[in-house]
């Protein structure tokens, strides 16, 4: 049985760069997420501290993690798209 992809993808010179970039972004987010879990586990009362707009640390950190995921995602995509254009532009017939 053929194990190839459902749609054949061309060679991507940027794949190694994107892979490393993804790993860096993943580690950054993991560190911030770990901080969130650690505070919730070890010092849950710290989450009561008022931050801004009348919101406490629990809500600000929670919303922050969600918004950070979106922002990092967009940033990652911009860097990847730019790398794909830069590294694949001289390849013939390359589809990203």
């Amino acid at each position: 049985m053929d194990h190839g992809p459902a749609v054949q993808c061309g060679k991507d010179n940027a794949s190694e760069y994107k892979s490393k970039l993804g790993l860096i972004f993943f580690v950054i987010y993991l560190a911030i997420y770990t901080g969130f879990v650690v505070i919730n586990t070890m010092k849950p009362k710290l989450m009561e501290i008022k931050m801004f707009l009348g919101l406490n640390l629990a809500v600000v950190y929670g919303f922050g993690l969600i918004i950070l995921a979106i922002v990092l995602g967009l940033f990652y995509n911009a860097l990847c798209s730019s790398a794909e254009k830069r590294m694949n532009k001289e390849e013939d017939g390359v589809k990203e």
Binding site: H3, C9, S15, L65, A69
Partner: peptide, 28 residues
């Protein structure tokens, strides 16, 4: 709400680690 945060955070792993390589290597 901690469930919401955990469920969403999991997507970061999907985006940064899994999405592209999985698409490149798999079929169905």
């Amino acid at each position: 709400f901690l469930y919401s945060i955990g469920y969403l955070a999991g997507w970061v792993v999907a985006l940064f680690v899994v999405a592209e390589p999985l698409k490149r290597m798999g079929k169905y």
